[in-house]
C-alpha cells in the first residue's frame, strides 16, 4: 500500500482516471491496433498471393522481413501518436483553466511535469503492448528472437520518452495546445525525416569527393556522415536488428570493409537524445511555474542571469 502511494501521486492518479474514462482513449487503442493489424495482414497477403512467382511459402526469412516492416510501421505510428498525447498535457490544463488551481497546491513543478509525462507514457506503453498479439503472427513463422523483440520495445519506449519530453516542454512554452502540438510534430519531423535526408545528402557528397580525388579512405577510417544516421530513429532501430548496419552506415563505397563503426548507431541515438530529454524536461519544469523560476532563496541579485538563461532556452 505504501509503495503504491509513493508511486502513484495525486497527479498521476487523476491523469490515469481521466485518461481511462474517456472514450477517446479506448478508440485510440482500437484504431491503433487496427492500423497495425491491417499492415500485418496486408503484408502476409502481398507475400503469399501476390508475389511475382505466384503463391509462395511463408518462411522465417519472410517473417523476419515482416517483423521489420511491422516495427517500422509502429515507429511511424508512435511518431504520430506521441506528440498528440503529450503536447497538450500542460497547455490543455491552461486552456481548461485548471492549471492555476493545480499550481497553488503543494505539488512541486517537477512532480506535475513528470507525473503528466509518466501518465502519457504509460498510456502509450499500453497501446504498444496491446499490439503484441499482432507481433505474435511473426513468432508463428519464426525468424525473430525474443531478445530482438524486447530491444525493439525498449527502443520504442525511449522514442516515446523523447517525443513526450519535447511535447511536454512545448506544452509549457506555448499557451495554446494546437501550437504546442504543431511545433512538436515539426521537431519530430526533423528527428525522423531531416536527419535521414541529411545523411543521404552528405553521404552523396562524400562519395563524390572520394571518386573525384580518387583516394580510397585509409584503412580503419570512417566517414563522419554516419553520425547523422545515428540521430535518426529508423537508422538507430535498424542497427538494433542488424549489428553490421552501424558499420555500413559509416562506410563509403570502396572503403575498407574491416573498418569498424566508431559507435553503434542505437547507442549514439540513446546518448544524444538522453541529453535532449533531460534538457527538455528541465526547461518544462522551470517554465511551468513563473514564481518557482525566480525562487532563489535570499539572493535577488542572482535572479536576473538565471531568468535570462531560462527565457533563452525557452524560446
Amino acid at each position: 500500500m505504501n509503495w503504491s502511494r509513493r508511486l502513484i501521486n495525486p497527479v498521476i492518479d487523476k491523469e490515469f482516471r481521466l485518461r481511462m474514462r474517456s472514450t477517446r482513449s479506448m478508440l485510440s487503442v482500437l484504431f491503433y491496433i487496427l492500423a497495425l493489424g491491417t499492415i500485418a495482414m496486408g503484408f502476409i497477403y502481398l507475400f503469399l498471393y501476390l508475389g511475382n512467382r505466384g503463391p509462395q511459402r511463408f518462411d522465417p526469412q519472410v517473417s523476419q522481413m515482416m517483423f521489420y516492416v511491422l516495427s517500422f510501421a509502429q515507429l511511424v505510428l508512435i511518431a504520430f501518436m506521441a506528440p498528440a498525447l503529450t503536447a497538450g498535457v500542460i497547455s490543455s490544463e491552461r486552456e481548461k483553466q485548471t492549471l492555476s488551481m493545480l499550481l497553488t497546491t503543494q505539488q512541486s513543478s517537477s512532480t506535475i511535469v513528470l507525473s503528466k509525462l509518466v501518465s502519457a507514457l504509460s498510456f502509450m506503453a499500453l497501446i504498444v503492448l496491446a499490439t503484441l498479439p499482432v507481433y505474435s503472427i511473426v513468432f508463428l513463422y519464426g525468424g525473430i528472437s525474443p531478445k530482438q523483440l524486447i530491444s525493439v520495445f525498449l527502443f520504442y519506449l525511449f522514442v516515446m520518452l523523447l517525443l513526450g519530453a519535447l511535447g511536454v516542454m512545448f506544452s509549457t512554452l506555448f499557451k495554446r495546445t494546437i501550437v504546442a502540438i504543431i511545433v512538436t510534430y515539426g521537431v519530430g519531423l526533423i528527428i525522423f525525416l531531416v536527419t535521414g535526408l541529411l545523411y543521404l545528402f552528405f553521404m552523396g557528397i562524400e562519395q563524390r569527393n572520394m571518386y573525384v580525388t580518387g583516394q580510397p579512405p585509409v584503412a580503419g577510417t570512417h566517414s563522419w556522415v554516419g553520425y547523422l544516421l545515428g540521430l535518426n530513429p529508423a537508422g538507430a532501430m535498424m542497427s538494433l536488428f542488424d549489428s553490421s548496419f552501424s558499420k555500413e552506415a559509416f562506410l563509403l563505397y570502396g572503403g575498407n570493409l574491416n573498418s569498424k563503426a566508431p559507435i553503434e548507431l542505437w547507442l549514439e541515438f540513446v546518448i544524444v537524445y538522453s541529453v535532449v530529454i533531460v534538457l527538455a524536461l528541465w526547461i518544462a519544469i522551470r517554465n511551468i511555474r513563473p514564481v518557482a523560476r525566480r525562487r532563489k532563496g535570499e539572493e535577488p541579485a542572482e535572479q536576473l542571469p538565471q531568468d535570462h538563461s531560462t527565457s533563452e532556452n525557452g524560446v
Binding site: 487523476k14 482516471r17 481521466l18 474514462r21 474517456s22 481548461k96 483553466q97 485548471t98 492555476s100 488551481m101 497553488t104
Partner: peptide
C-alpha cells in the same frame, strides 16, 4: 491560502 480564480475549469471526468 485557498485561491479561487475568476475563471476556472473543472476536470469533467471526475
Amino acid at each position: 491560502i485557498g485561491y479561487m480564480p475568476d475563471f476556472f475549469g473543472v476536470y469533467d471526468q471526475l
